[in-house]
Design a protein around this nucleic acid. Structure first.
Lengths: 128, 128
DNA sequence: ACGCTGTTTCGATGTTTATCGATACAGCCT
DNA sequence: AGGCTGTATCGATAAACATCGAAACAGCGT
């Protein structure tokens, strides 16, 4: 199956695209788009998967590394990885026998900046 | 006695409590806890509610301000506000006839710092 | 006390989600 | 080719969720 045909949202690489949502009301479409990403993060297993992938050496992990730490079946892990991928939070690629996943930092950065609270002071030197 | 001044902690980078999840694997309980907050953010209406509340003058809004902009019934808005409150993302207080809601910045800051990605695009020769 | 307005709770309903076992697909061996 | 391992999809099921109208609750007027 071709992995390139999957609907992927939030791929834009404009990291600093989103000012904090606390500054001005979120548009309706933006909200729908962002909610999909947060929904992908709304499961403990998916959160741990994401964290585990990012923490792996090289920033990527194969599925075989990811099924062990959890008490759910392999199809369930595969399902969660698919959710993360379709939300645009991770990328994946088959390399021979194994399929590797890695985190897409721009997506995380987008959400992170969106959630930045009304600041006491200007965060000087936001990571770019 | 009014809680008009909210405690604002560690807005800019590196909040003491949570290092980015991409650094080290998330613990199981942390993941469960965080997933609840992200689940509260996983609905477009709740995202817009949160943004709307924070954007209001004084950083708070009464329910009567929040029902208009949406196409759902008032009980539904009330339900969503309850979800946000139980997730620890907003606070609320009845003042006479009206009930006011405000954002809890520390909660947003926690999520924001958690999602902070490592350097987005690595400069040439970065460790990889 | 009474009615009026703002807000929450309750019950019901249709949809989405997490999970599993079984099965299909993909690439490596011998 | 045939068998083996790793990964994804399928079909089913139970739990969780969003939404509504109706009803209950809370203050404020008169």
């Amino acid at each position: 199956m071709s992995k390139s045909e999957l609907p992927v949202i939030g791929q834009d690489d404009q990291v600093a695209c989103c000012s904090p949502m606390v500054r001005e009301p979120l548009g309706e479409e933006d909200a729908v788009d962002l909610a999909k990403m947060f929904k992908a993060l709304s499961d403990p297993i998916r959160l741990r998967l994401l964290s585990l992938i990012a923490s792996y050496e090289g920033g990527e992990a194969c599925v075989c590394d990811l099924t062990g730490p959890f008490d759910v079946s392999q199809p369930t892990i595969s399902h969660h990885l698919k959710v993360l991928r379709e939300a645009g939070l991770v990328g994946s690629e088959r390399r021979g026998t194994w399929v590797y996943y890695w985190v897409l930092p721009a997506a995380l950065a987008r959400l992170s900046s969106l959630l930045q609270a009304p600041a006491v002071a200007e965060p000087a030197g936001a990571v770019r």
